[in-house]
Nucleic acid binder design. Structure first.
Lengths: 228, 228
DNA sequence: AAAATTTAATGATATTTGTCATACAAGTGT
DNA sequence: ACACTTGTATGACAAATATCATTAAATTTT
């Protein structure tokens, strides 16, 4: 099991503000775990007693609606942290976190986190910054979902996925999602998502190869996402 | 101009965790302001250099979409604080804050806030708790907006308004909103909102008297909001 | 109080999106 | 290589919602 002081992933998130001693503390108490594709790291409504630091792998954050539909709220990849929101608000976990590929994750107990939060104001500010940024993003998404037609929303999330996951060697966005997952992200029926993807391909705005998506005309995509 | 140490409003928010000395500091540097109905306290995209503590009055937090439509993200009333998200993430203001009635507001400079945040971990934790809670609420709203039909969303926000603003002496929800504002909250056309409100009235689930709404059958409303 | 403006209500119609049915393709395990 | 499951695609149709037009009511201004 690796040592937190050596871990390069921590440079990507709020943990970068910790002292050597604090990292040693985390390292002693942390546990590493492997999550297989499709498995849940966190489950909506459950209690949580620590912070997850994602070492490797991609996952989706979802919510099950009262009408039984899954809504994908956000995608997360290695370098991000999870669970701090729930720890801080003292509320149950609000989202399901499901692995989209095999993941390697570290778990740090709540007590250690809270202790360091009290002592290290740089860490504390960094966590606040993270959540504040997320809140702003969430507010933008509310507006997006409430006001824009499905086609616009699809264009938006294709660009989002591109920003988050980047491109593979062939220029396709480096994430594999089913059509159903895409539909659950933009809040529409699977068939509608399929049709709109096909349209974008026909118009040479994107290319499709199995589940992979390549952006061909970013400008056109941007225009669609803004309602033109 | 009042003194922060005496202010009863501060008991309702994170400021309750401040020491007498810290409140004195705030009190010395704070400015009080009056915002008239319809005026903006904050504007989307602008910089902000302090925290607002709402003494009295109700306001709406909105966002102007790329397609020119206004989306109401949230309603806020006296006792709440505003602007901390933007200060903490070091990002421009994300939302317009518009007074729905005359407001009395205190402004505390950013420097003072950041200083106390570093020193007072109780205050700091309380702010984190506030934002974390807001993030959870925002995630719920994303799901609500993306997945549910307009009728369900209308039922949901009527209950929300009831929770936030309570009832007046006649049992009507204590907030005055135009039909357009209601439509902009649930992300639909004004005409659709009007029609659905009329239907709810016809079904004796709510009562309408001008712009005021009274809940007659909370259970029915809850069922609708959950898609039954 | 009358006029002007804004807001609310309602019908007719167009557009968007969802649902159901079916076919086909791709992946999975035996 | 085979059946079996799951995912993708497409057409036909139904339902939800938006848009446009018009009238009525409420509010503000003069």
């Amino acid at each position: 099991m690796g040592n937190c002081t050596q871990c390069i992933v921590k440079r990507l998130n709020a943990l970068r503000n910790l002292s050597h001693e604090e990292l040693e503390l985390f390292s002693e108490h942390k546990t590493s775990l492997l999550i297989k594709k499709g498995e849940n790291l966190m489950t909506e409504g459950s209690a949580i007693n620590g912070l997850y630091c994602i070492n490797q792998g991609k996952c989706k954050l979802t919510k099950l609606n009262t009408n039984g539909k899954e809504q994908i709220i956000k995608f997360i990849k290695g370098g991000d942290i999870l669970g701090h929101r729930s720890i801080l608000s003292d509320e149950p976990v609000g989202l399901n976190v499901t692995a989209l590929e095999d993941m390697r994750v570290c778990f740090i107990p709540k007590g250690d986190i809270l202790e360091v939060l009290k002592e290290n104001s740089l860490f504390s500010l960094s966590i606040m910054k993270n959540i504040s940024h997320q809140l702003n993003e969430a507010n933008n998404l509310i507006s997006e979902m409430a006001q824009k037609p499905v086609k616009d929303r699809l264009a938006t999330i294709i660009m989002n996925l591109n920003d988050i996951f980047g491109k593979d060697s062939e220029g396709f966005i480096d994430i594999v999602l089913t059509r159903e997952e895409i539909a659950n992200t933009i809040g529409t029926a699977t068939e509608s998502a399929i049709r709109l993807l096909s349209n974008l391909k026909k118009d040479k705005i994107i290319d499709l190869k199995g589940k992979k998506i390549k952006i061909l005309d970013l400008n056109a995509l941007k225009n669609i996402s803004e309602g033109y």
